[in-house]
């Protein structure tokens, strides 16, 4: 499944305008402690977090995640979106808790 399919099938909101929607999603990682995510995430995964800070973009870029999924309506700022667009990392807001977001992805077969 790619990012475009995910958005179509969930109705989740794409926060970044500049992003490659054809990027394939290969698995999911959930976590908010950045070192934990950095140490355990795998390339291609969608990363679900409630951490909203500039540094999530660096983590996603360096860890080569396919996208960042912001759960629970955590407060995404324009600065983070700008940084993400600069690094070509897609950020999607799920609007539901981490667990529900992950369950939805499982239902979709990610």
């Amino acid at each position: 499944m790619n990012i475009k399919n995910l958005i179509e099938q969930t109705g989740w909101k794409l926060a970044t305008e500049k992003a490659d929607l054809n990027t394939e999603i290969e698995g999911v990682y959930c976590g908010d402690l950045l070192s934990w995510v950095m140490g355990n995430g795998e390339p291609g995964q969608a990363w679900i977090t409630v951490q909203v800070h500039m540094n999530i973009v660096a983590v996603a870029k360096l860890r080569e995640f396919s996208c960042i999924l912001i759960a629970d309506n955590a407060n995404l700022t324009p600065e983070i979106i700008d940084r993400a667009e600069g690094e070509e990392i897609a950020i999607i807001e799920t609007g539901i808790p981490v667990f529900e977001s992950a369950r939805k992805l499982i239902e979709l077969g990610v």
Partner: peptide, 9 residues
């Protein structure tokens, strides 16, 4: 508070 300090660095 910014998600650092997991003690995993």
């Amino acid at each position: 508070n910014l998600g650092f300090g997991a003690g995993m660095g």
